[in-house]
Simulated scan of single mutants.
Amino acid sequence: MIKGLKSLSTLMTPKVNSAKRIPRAQISIKGLFQLRGGQCVACLEPHAHFGLCTPCRQDLPANHSHCRCCALPIAYAGDELICGQCLKDPPPFSRIVAPWRYRFPVDGMVQRYKYNGQRAYARPLIQDLSTHLTLMLETHPERTPDLLLASPMHPARRRKRGFNQAADIAEHISRQSGIPWSADLVVRNRRTRPQRGLNREERLANLRGIYQVTRIPPASIAIVDDVVTTGATARSLTEVLLEAGAREVQIWALARTPG
């Protein structure tokens, strides 16, 4: 059972006579998914599957009740209702798929991955998102996109962070599903203020005019990201893709904030 996130032992300094460990610098997103066993990143249980033991995986905050359009968590059971915001201002994208709510322990797992580069914390979330999408596309094959688009990051920010988490997620989903992915169909043409701490209107203003489509997009696209907060990034990216010729855009993410 999840009791708090601790550093994964394979990312700590090895002790004398300890078992052979994989150096952190050699752990790629592809390599992490080849290591199916190991310790649970949440409780350090020695028998984990893709980084989480069964009890901790069951404790993840599933986003069962949500708006069928923007995936905003709602209090009513089911996924066929539409939230007030989507009724008032329908988004340009067709749907958001986000299996979890962005709260403990998912929020801590994403933050350790995104801001500290601890990819082991993302491994179970990315793998389970891929499994969730596989099941969804088996049930609704008409939702299969022509292309996965990793949510773009400004080159300067990517150099500072060392990676684009959306590209990690898109690459793994592509490898599991066979759907091609791209990191350069849309680029950021200037830096902006960080989105953290901004409300919805400020986020939309912050993103206005920053995206540029580099070539004619395919008809159906799924934008891949880590977390959907207000939907401002999703709206801005979708609008430029539709203007460039795409006909349908979905958003696939690990988690959705409660609002």
Results as ranks from 00 to 15, higher is better:
55 P>W: 11
86 C>T: 07
86 C>E: 06
36 R>P: 00
61 P>R: 10
26 Q>D: 13
75 A>W: 03
50 F>I: 07
72 L>V: 12
25 A>Q: 14
90 P>W: 07
38 G>K: 08
64 H>I: 11
84 G>H: 13
72 L>T: 15
66 H>K: 14
87 L>V: 03
46 P>N: 06
86 C>W: 05
56 C>V: 03
34 Q>I: 05
77 A>S: 13
49 H>T: 09
40 C>Y: 01
46 P>M: 09
48 A>S: 14
22 I>Q: 12
68 R>M: 08
21 R>W: 11
66 H>V: 02
32 L>G: 13
77 A>N: 07
29 I>S: 06
71 A>P: 03
71 A>H: 09
24 R>T: 13
43 C>A: 03
34 Q>N: 09
66 H>D: 00
53 C>F: 02
38 G>H: 10
29 I>H: 05
43 C>S: 04
81 L>G: 04
62 A>F: 09
39 Q>D: 14
32 L>N: 02
93 F>V: 07
54 T>W: 05
20 K>S: 11
48 A>T: 05
69 C>D: 01
92 P>C: 10
92 P>D: 08
75 A>K: 14
52 L>P: 01
75 A>M: 08
45 E>K: 02
55 P>H: 10
74 I>H: 03
89 D>N: 13
74 I>P: 04
73 P>R: 09
32 L>P: 01
34 Q>P: 00
86 C>M: 07
67 C>M: 05
32 L>M: 12
51 G>D: 03
35 L>G: 01
94 S>Y: 11
71 A>R: 08
